[in-house]
């Protein structure tokens, strides 16, 4: 209740216009960056760089547009735990499918053809 202007709300944090516009600008710049990076062949760093930029964008959206920085910490924990489970799912599935890939019979003659 120590706020000087009327830019205050009793139930939740109010995001200043400057921050909103700043995050918007940063997101646009990062989108440009990821497109620009993709025009260069960086070999196996292609994917990691694209993912890093996407993650930075995602963190910006989460922290400011979604108010996570000013929100209850627990909401952030819930969200991050959800993402960790996604990573768990992806990594174990990729590990296993990669290992049996050579034994998979796909498009082989004895596989029943599509109706």
């Amino acid at each position: 209740m120590t706020d000087n202007h009327d830019h205050h709300n009793e139930l939740a944090h109010v995001m200043p216009v400057k921050v909103l516009l700043g995050v918007f600008g940063a997101l646009l710049v990062l989108t440009g960056a990821t497109v620009w990076v993709a025009t260069h062949d960086l070999g196996r760093f292609d994917l990691s760089l694209a993912l890093i930029i996407a993650t930075v964008k995602a963190v910006l959206v989460a922290l400011y547009f979604m108010h996570l920085r000013y929100d209850k910490v627990f909401n952030a924990i819930v969200f991050v735990v959800g993402i960790l489970f996604v990573i768990l799912f992806i990594s174990l599935a990729v590990m296993d499918t990669g290992n049996y890939q050579s034994q998979l019979l796909r498009n082989a003659d004895h596989v029943i053809r599509y109706r």
Binding site: N9, V14, V17, L20, F24, Y64, F65
Partner: peptide, 16 residues
């Protein structure tokens, strides 16, 4: 991204 900005702004407007 623009729609995200305006949606975040909508929250601000409602709060104020």
């Amino acid at each position: 991204i623009l729609s995200s900005l305006t949606m975040a702004w909508a929250v601000r407007c409602a709060q104020l």
